[in-house]
């Protein structure tokens, strides 16, 4: 079969990214322009500011991806773009850029779900086998996704309140750590011990998650220490919180592995970059020698466009194309992906 080259564009949150991907599993080029330094000033992502920076970045990021790949538009087979979910103003810029390029260069336009991209980033490491279970963990998502076959997504567990990355950011804030909080807690936890008792969250469904109780427990614990005039050991609190949060993730994964018996298990999303989570998964998966498991490279855990090209390849082979009136969808439903 002829090689398939796709240009992918991602702008759903605070990274403007473009990438050329070959056959869904080989990265030819990948450019990511992060806005993190700007948003640090604001202590979080400010949607209007993010949209403004996307417009400033969009043309050079895409041109750079094409130049690094040493490709002309006539060498491409299609343009993939994140249609959602994400910040509406941010999504608009990428979607508009993709529609323009598809029209001007007469290429098929391929709409991609951001989370499907995170999941398929694992394709850069291992070929995916089905059925597959994916743990999606990021600032906006905490989901267990069941894929009985290629490009079919069923959400079997989700958070009842905060996403795990969100809980990390909030706890980091109360501990006085700078934004973004996740990597800070991960780093600090290495110097601490798990000695502050924190509760186990309860959910009706054994594959669902809940993190707001854990976050409140950390706050209460800090208040208690203050009342007793006891000194807070930040590293110990970071470690206690991280062990509790990641322990909860693993409990749900373990239940799903036993119940659903996938052939392949992957983790995906920004929190998949967490060093303790990676270690925990590697240790615990020793008990499941029959299940292939994949952890994406650090670079492809956080938002990038290569992952959109990886997922877009499946849409391309299935003939899932969009017309030029494609609109950005801030709350695009993962379960509708691949369905007509």
């Amino acid at each position: 079969m002829k090689d398939v080259y796709l240009l992918a564009i991602e702008s759903s949150c605070d990274e403007t990214a473009a990438s050329v991907v070959k056959n869904g599993d080989t990265i030819v080029s990948s450019i990511v322009s992060s806005q993190i330094d700007v948003h640090k000033r604001f202590g979080g992502v400010v949607p209007e500011v993010a949209s403004r920076i996307h417009v400033e970045n969009v043309s050079w990021v895409i041109r750079e991806a094409m130049e690094q790949a040493d490709m002309k538009y006539s060498d491409l087979d299609g343009i993939c773009v994140t249609q959602g979910p994400g910040l509406i103003g941010s999504l608009h810029v990428g979607v508009q850029a993709a529609k323009t390029l598809a029209y001007v260069h007469d290429l098929p336009l391929i709409p991609v779900h951001h989370i499907s991209g995170h999941i398929y980033a694992n394709q850069f490491v291992d070929p995916i086998t089905y059925p597959m279970l994916a743990l999606v963990v990021s600032g906006g998502h905490t989901e267990l996704v069941w894929m009985k076959e290629e490009y079919s997504f069923e959400i079997i567990g989700t958070t009842q309140d905060d996403a795990v990355g969100e809980a990390y950011d909030k706890v980091a804030r109360v501990l006085g750590l700078p934004y973004p909080g996740g990597p800070q807690i991960d780093r600090l936890a290495k110097e601490g011990t798990n000695r502050y008792p924190l509760p186990k969250p309860h959910t009706e469904n054994p594959t669902d998650f809940s993190f707001s109780g854990l976050k409140s427990a950390v706050i209460q614990s800090l208040q208690r220490l203050e009342r007793r005039n006891e000194e807070l050991n930040k590293a110990d609190m970071a470690c206690s919180f991280q062990e509790a949060a990641l322990g909860e993730l693993w409990n749900r994964v373990e239940y799903a592995l036993n119940e659903y018996k996938p052939a392949h298990f992957v983790i995906a999303g920004g929190v998949a970059a967490n060093s303790r989570l990676r270690q925990l998964i590697t240790e615990n998966m020793k008990a499941y020698p029959d299940i292939t498991y994949t952890i994406p490279p650090l670079k492809y855990c956080t938002d990038n466009a290569a992952m959109i090209g990886a997922s877009g390849y499946h849409a391309y082979t299935k003939g899932i194309f969009a017309s030029e009136d494609l609109g950005a969808k801030p709350s695009l439903d993962l379960e509708q992906v691949g369905k007509f």
């Binding site: 209007e48 949209s51 403004r52 417009v55 969009v58 043309s59 050079w60 895409i62 041109r63 538009y73 509406i88 103003g89 608009h92 810029v93 508009q96 850029a97 323009t100 390029l101 001007v104 260069h105």
Partner: peptide
Amino acid sequence: SYTGVRIAMTVAKMVASSI
């Protein structure tokens, strides 16, 4: 309109930079 201004500008930048 912030979003509005960005639409035509994104199209214009992509056309000019790609052709």
